[in-house]
Nucleic acid binder design. Sequence first.
DNA 1: TCTAAAAATTTACACGCGTTAAGAAATCAT
DNA 2: ATGATTTCTTAACGCGTGTAAATTTTTAGA
Lengths: 343, 343
Amino acid sequence: MAQQKIRNMEEFAAVSGISRPTLSKYFNDPGSVRRSTRQRIETALEQYDYRPNVFAVNQNRARTKNIGIVVPNLADPFFSEIGSKVELACISAGYSPILLSSHGNPALERDNLESLRSLKPAGVLLAPFGRVSDQKDIESFNRDVPVVLFDANVEGTCEAFVGTNNFQSVDLIVEYLCRSGEPPCFFEMKSPTNPNANKRRQAYLESMARHGHTPHIYRAEGDGWNFEDIGSAEGGRFLSERAFRTDTVLCSNDRLAIGMLSAAYRQGKRVGLGEGCELRIAGHDDHPFARYTCPSLTTIAQDYAAIANRAVNTLFGILDTDQRPSIREETLFDGKLVMRDSA
Amino acid sequence: MAQQKIRNMEEFAAVSGISRPTLSKYFNDPGSVRRSTRQRIETALEQYDYRPNVFAVNQNRARTKNIGIVVPNLADPFFSEIGSKVELACISAGYSPILLSSHGNPALERDNLESLRSLKPAGVLLAPFGRVSDQKDIESFNRDVPVVLFDANVEGTCEAFVGTNNFQSVDLIVEYLCRSGEPPCFFEMKSPTNPNANKRRQAYLESMARHGHTPHIYRAEGDGWNFEDIGSAEGGRFLSERAFRTDTVLCSNDRLAIGMLSAAYRQGKRVGLGEGCELRIAGHDDHPFARYTCPSLTTIAQDYAAIANRAVNTLFGILDTDQRPSIREETLFDGKLVMRDSA
DNA sequence: TCTAAAAATTTACACGCGTTAAGAAATCAT
DNA sequence: ATGATTTCTTAACGCGTGTAAATTTTTAGA
């Protein structure tokens, strides 16, 4: 293998017998050189260990092959799941993804966009905090870089949005819950930062009205990202105080539901559909752990893969045509009902 | 604010009235210029929006301020937890961390190290797969870049290792389980990729011998990273076949335990210490979800923060002195027993 | 075999910053 | 105020690659 250390493209040109500009063309697009020279280059590449200097390559580029991916919190399995899918899709498309987590801190979202700016990314896939995101920062960033939003929408900003149709998905599970038992009440955070939470509440209200039932909404105190804890503490409090007016609780997301399930278990309340069950609990998102809760969680599965793929493809579409789309596209995928044992 | 677009350091020198070499010094170390000029620069920085071009800055550097962080799988909350801590520690030390996940695929670990190589990182913090890591690749990478291993050890490689003392931690929980009831059997994966799993089995055997009990080991079939699934399927099978010779099961890690808990629940087996409980299940790691299982999981808490901090500080120590340490340091932190309801 | 088109080579400059050397200016100690 | 010292400015080169223009070589088509 490596006979001598190749320091730059000049030296590699010398040992491979190919001129430097041709090599430059090859590294930017192997298909742009004649088949025979491509093979000569690749033969030389196997013999000598050389790779173009990333920093020199990008120095004079207005745009690189970097794709920024920003999610609110990688500690949330939902985002690590969808973030991974997006990341892998970028890799297989020949881009260099950079996955950044804002660690639940909106200020870090700003910082992450700032860091990305200096990496001159070709585009960015952003799952924003939503309401607490700094919309001006996002818009300012978007002026320089194409951005496709996913998971959470910020109305009217960036090139496109890809997410789940909360109205469809919530209606689906409300309909199921009504059909299979008592109409559900709705359990959520008091001040949700995520716009999906607001959509889901709205969807719950509309769906209950459509089915001719009276809605009941219960809101948990608490801030931060420790949703299980909030679901456990506040959900548990509501349960022990018998505050819920129905025995079917639809949680705004699975993490709240997971917390509430643990509270129900502690209180010895049997959750589920069968005989002797006094409570039904359902969630939303099909969290990776939802199938291992006790009982396993009935929920709505977001189509992670479809969302990730569409977001990535939308961005690549923009990059390929090299022009921002004139109309802002919003794509909503339907959720699927996942019937398990908790409701 | 930004009156005109500053394109490079030359232009910023013009508008700020400071020479370019001085600016260059300032950006590399603000403390290296006189206080008065520093303030003039900073005043200008507030007025004009300029930041040095990252690629140009790093082009001629042998080392950058980048720190690579590589973990086997960010979808595992354990790694997203410890990865985040490491990441934040790097940021507050003034470095630029780049967190990479190998998505459960050892081949990607190799790729990640390759990508990092071209980013000329000052150092790398690596949580390797262990047995299935390509040791030669890691060693080859380590020749060029200082590497501190954490979580999983690869004997004799890299500058240092920081992890948990499995012998202490397993002994701690074995002792507790023996003291509070029946001595435990041990449940693990048949072919664990992680070296900690092997240490834990060994520790279990030694600990049981020390306490004068007969060890029993049960091994689950199955590959991949879906530990909960394996724990649920195989653990459930052992339970329903009454294969375990004791009613206390120590799982090699929390994710297996979480899966087994869900299987026990499905089978209507009450898990815990109290009256009417027929089974005790314990885990290891204090997985972020361990407190929300049903019942909540008795386990060993690894000192995430201590491990992350020590790993980072060890690396920075090497970077500061700018020379590889002559002796390879191994630091093991004790685990803490977390008594919850499952055992 | 000849010709037109395609592809590679040669030459040269650009990018933005690090860095050095020599000289000018500001600061400090006396 | 003076000289010594620190700090800054000016001028210039280098880093590794992109890229453009002019030229030469190779290939494809008849």
